[in-house]
């Protein structure tokens, strides 16, 4: 698995994917639907899959001394590494906005979602949606990427709308409270998001590993 992940990082993940991590800085843009940053990070990963299809990456990998199921597992692990880097950047910028920049004039009146632990939880849910919809869909054929990415985009759109709308519903105002109010409850949401991300990713990965065994190349 170590060698497979090394191969993924060295050959399969294109530089553009790492560049798209910079979308994390959208968190600093005032009055912007900041959940979109997670979508852009996933879009960067999508480009590596697109490139991989053009370069026959899966066939190259399958001809190495590896088990078919491990090819899917390594790909999931690699995506998690990229998402982890993106999440780390977004978390650091969220902390920056919640602390040092909390009194900055440009962020004072923001009708959209503020960076907070709830925002981080929703970011993880978007990453989970990518792993379930896109990666899960890709490993039905190990070839098709269009439909799985469309499915992921639709789910992301719903999550972004839900994230922006829920805070305005009665009783859910804590989702938007700025500068660390109701931090305990928000952290609980983040923990739930992390659990959901891990569970969804593990389940999607197991399913993809089984499907990989069934595909004729």
């Amino acid at each position: 698995m170590k060698h497979l992940v090394h191969k993924e990082l060295r050959l399969a993940v294109i530089p553009l994917t790492w560049c798209f991590l910079l979308a994390g800085f959208l968190v600093l843009v005032p009055g912007y639907p900041i959940l979109i940053s997670a979508f852009f990070i996933c879009l960067g990963i999508f480009y590596s899959f697109q490139q991989g299809r053009e370069t026959n990456d899966v066939l190259y990998t399958l001809l190495l001394p590896v088990r078919k199921r491990d090819v899917a597992a390594a790909r999931f692990l690699t995506v998690c590494i990229v998402q982890g880097c993106g999440f780390l950047l977004i978390t650091l910028l969220t902390i920056l906005r919640m602390t040092v920049l909390s009194q900055a004039e440009v962020y004072r009146s923001n009708p959209l979602m503020n960076p907070s632990p709830v925002f981080l939880a929703l970011t993880l849910l978007i990453f989970a949606a990518f792993n379930v919809c896109f990666l899960g869909g890709f490993f039905k054929t190990a070839y098709q990427i269009g439909k799985p990415f469309l499915a992921f985009s639709a789910v992301t759109l719903l999550l972004v709308f839900a994230g922006e709308a829920l805070q305005h519903l009665p009783g859910l105002g804590f989702l938007q409270t700025p500068q660390g109010e109701r931090l305990g409850l928000q952290c609980l949401c983040l923990a739930a998001g992390a659990v959901l991300y891990a569970a969804a990713t593990v389940l999607a990965c197991r399913r993809a590993m089984k499907r990989m065994e069934q595909i004729d190349f």
Partner: peptide, 30 residues
């Protein structure tokens, strides 16, 4: 599968993967 593939070699026609990567890089990974 894994142990067996480490003991065998296979080649199917011409290389048609990673056409724009340096051969040295491909061999270093392989």
């Amino acid at each position: 599968e894994k142990e067996i593939k480490q003991r065998i070699g296979y080649a199917c026609g011409a290389v048609d993967y990673y056409p724009r990567r340096k051969i040295a890089d491909l061999l270093a990974v392989t």
